[in-house]
Design a protein around this nucleic acid. Structure first.
Lengths: 218, 218
DNA sequence: CTATTTTGTTCTACTTTAGTTCTTTTTTTA
DNA sequence: TAAAAAAAGAACTAAAGTAGAACAAAATAG
């Protein structure tokens, strides 16, 4: 297995030869892999020659040839690439869009049709998330409108006052504010036209907590 | 592999033979790669023969043969990498976050402190966009709450009924529904506690139309 | 076939660029 | 915190590039 530096150098040499037709000089290589001295390049090349990744014409300048490329990346390189990917995404992640909430269907039943919805990373800092389309107006007093997309953090517990996706009797999923009172659970709509439901705690399962909301006009 | 000069010369020889059918002379070569003496050409050709890119019939004039060419992966690599980057972004774009709306300050005045806000590509399909933090409750009836982030499409015109960022007297920017009535403009809040403002059209400039909304809980 | 031109080879001298080999310093790792 | 590995730095050697000239071998014209 190659060291990260060896791997990086080999990739650079290969790329340069393929792209320009010329072999890079030691100075160009040292720039490419962020070294300040050529002697390090010398050592790396000796190692690559010894391991039969490179061949060189002795006593010639710019006379390297790539014999073969490694099939495995050093794990340090993989880590680094992952970080780069993160940076490239600009803090965006994709979460599954499950379907509609406040209809009579449990969420799991529609989970398979999942589209992906890209959202800013800050919205989903940690934990598992999914998205739902809101149907109905039972929460308009706190600005959750029919047609909005809500992003839900998966969780089976909630604190009093949280807005949660609640599954009632394993068949009906709704978005409501939750409050526990003894062995009972209150599901509180945020619209004066609707009434709070008071249910036995065993009938209600929390499926997630409201994390953020996205709305598109027209 | 090759030095830059060797590569240049090899390319020239190959091109000349392909185009004219006969091998260039040393003097032609020295012109082609900007040398003033043939001796350099001689050395370069010796090197190319040694590296098995050229063959020459000894004691013959214009008797070079190209054995092989370094195979370049042209900018195809670069294209590919660009595409990968696009794919990685997963359809996300960044738009500037200008500041707060519904305070007394024109948007331009705070435009320089722009953070970037990543948003799903679908939200900002075409046109120029910026984001604003909503301050105040004048639009809560249509679900725009204090603290929400609204994404605004830049535009200086709006249709009746659009929710717009309106700049009044060049000093006060607000988010309101707009309606035109003759030479006057109505700025309609969506909260019964606020009153519609009726202003001379010349005092109001549209700075953008509400495109989408993002809200984060806790 | 010979004279002339074109072309290629060789040499010297010099400058620049490149590669090697050390020693010293810094960083890692156990 | 001591040993080992990696990196930096300097000094040195070698190769590449540049130029000019002298010369020898092909090609070609007459």
């Amino acid at each position: 297995m190659l060291t990260p530096k060896q791997y990086k150098l080999l990739m650079f040499i290969n790329k340069t030869i393929k792209e320009t037709g010329c072999c890079p000089s030691f100075d160009e290589m040292k720039e490419a892999i962020s070294l300040k001295s050529k002697s390090g390049i010398h050592a790396l090349i000796e190692a690559l020659v010894e391991r039969n990744f490179l061949r060189k014409l002795p006593h010639k300048a710019r006379a390297l040839e790539v014999v073969r490329m490694p099939k495995l990346k050093p794990s340090a390189i993989i880590e680094e690439e992952k970080k780069k990917e993160e940076a490239l995404k600009g803090g965006m992640v994709e979460i599954p869009l499950y379907g509609k909430i406040a209809a009579g269907t449990p969420i799991e039943a529609i989970a398979d049709q999942s589209e992906q919805l890209p959202v800013p990373y800050e919205m989903v800092a940690s934990g598992q998330y999914y998205a739902l389309k809101v149907e109905g107006d039972s929460m308009i007093n706190i600005g959750i409108m029919d047609g909005d997309t809500v992003i839900i953090k998966k969780s089976d517990v909630a604190r009093n006052g949280d807005i949660v996706v609640a599954l009632v009797d394993d068949c009906e999923a709704t978005l409501k504010q939750i409050k526990k009172e003894g062995g009972e659970v209150l599901l509180i709509p945020k619209n004066d036209a609707y009434e709070t439901r008071r249910l036995d705690a065993r009938r209600v399962k929390v499926q997630g907590i409201l994390s953020s909301l996205i709305r598109t006009y027209h």
